[in-house]
Design a protein around this nucleic acid. Structure first.
Lengths: 239, 239
DNA sequence: CAGTGGTCTAGACCACACT
DNA sequence: GTGTGGTCTAGACCACTGC
């Protein structure tokens, strides 16, 4: 049997020490923990890093380390296809709405555009509307979401701003009704872009969700990639 | 803007160097990479750790580091409630089948038992059948799964052995039909137990899935907690 | 400015696999 | 034994926050 590494012992001790702490409570500093547990700061950081990955604590550069907030649970209902939340509200901030041409041999993110074309089952050169949003709850950024809709949606930015929900906007302003959806869910790690957009550390676990929604006749109407904070979010699928 | 850390630059360089490598191909050793990129082994390890978390490479203690296999996608179909897989087969190894009493004030895992009682909507003291399995694909351990079924199932271990699928066994041998299910999905980190059971490193990201399945009348018939390897697995939910 | 977390170093020793 | 990855140290400096 492998012996337990030191950092893991420290992790459990730290976990026990915050068992009845409230979200937002400050933790001892890394140097303080290192001296208290008579170990190196490196080892303490390894223990703290796992607790950060598990969503138990959060680190704030220059300010300190704090006990984390409990996770938000995102309910994805089958019958209504609406998005809902237990307890809190999931809002969104639109970063950009623009038209692009998919599958084209343009510089840069051509792989991403080919993927969108495949997801929407479109030919190269088709026009697609791209909607980039940050999903928030209580003012805290939880996810970065890029949706792609086949064709053009004149005035979409304005309609979205006044309605909030993308699905409600599609239904009410454009008569587009989604009948089924498929979500592929995996894990990933925050890169520097995620870090900046979501205010989390690089390397933090993410929940990656790729959604393809279709009409009643099976025509793809939406292809969306979402990157949710793994420490603050859970996904609920009903079937 | 924050400057890019050195380990992140190395990560991208390493990623580029294995762009056209095949799964299973050996990587240079950590010490070799450190000397080649003129940096410390610590920094190289930080870069490699992220690639491990992302499922791009795997580390084997004492043997070396290798390019990882592509992930397996688990399809969770709504209509049949059956479990299926794209490409490969998802098998299972039964570790244990036994009866327990939930919610009881016993030593140790009383919190877990209370949780099971709540999930199955049972009173404290009820009898429950506990089925512990390891899910495998191509002989590789992908997940650890603990299912709880209300009541007793005489001969379940034997029936399971001859049929394989838990749902098929419940339906064919016990006339238990599941009509709906709810999956709560989040991320987690491998602890030493996960590490031993799944053959992965402590701290590796996991996909945590808690499933509650019910009869047509809404009575809970199954409460299962699964811990899937995040680097080798994706979950597909249809609705 | 002082204090926090973030990165990096050079080196040591341990645990494990293979020969 | 040799070589691999796994853990740990003591210290340095950087980047950010808030006084």
């Amino acid at each position: 049997m492998t012996s337990t590494p030191k950092y893991y012992t420290q992790k459990l001790r730290i976990l026990a020490s915050i068992a009845d702490a409230k979200p937002g409570d400050p933790m001892p500093t890394e140097r303080e923990l290192a001296s208290r547990f008579d170990t190196s700061r490196t080892t303490i950081r390894q223990a703290l890093s796992e607790l950060v990955h598990e969503g138990r604590i959060v680190r704030a550069h220059g300010r300190g380390t704090f006990v984390a907030q409990p996770p938000v649970i995102h309910v994805r209902s089958l019958t209504s296809l609406s998005e809902d939340l237990t307890g809190t509200t999931l809002d969104s901030v639109v970063l950009e709405v623009r038209e692009i041409v998919v599958g084209a041999e343009v510089s840069g993110d051509s792989a991403a555009r080919a993927e969108v074309a495949a997801g929407l089952e479109l030919d190269s050169g088709s026009a697609v509307t791209r909607v980039e949003r940050v999903r928030t709850s209580d003012g805290e950024a939880l996810a970065h979401e890029v949706a792609h809709l086949p064709g053009t949606y004149p005035g979409l930015a304005g309609e979205l701003a006044s309605r909030g929900s993308l699905y409600a906007t599609l239904r009410d302003a454009y008569d587009v009704v989604l009948a089924s959806a498929e979500d592929e869910i995996g894990t990933g790690l925050a890169d520097p872009d995620d870090s900046a957009r979501l205010g989390i550390a690089v390397g933090q676990p993410l929940l990656l969700i790729t959604r393809t929604a279709r009409s009643g006749t099976g025509v793809p109407l939406e292809f969306t990639r979402s990157r949710f904070r793994g420490d603050r979010f859970r996904f609920l699928a009903r079937s």
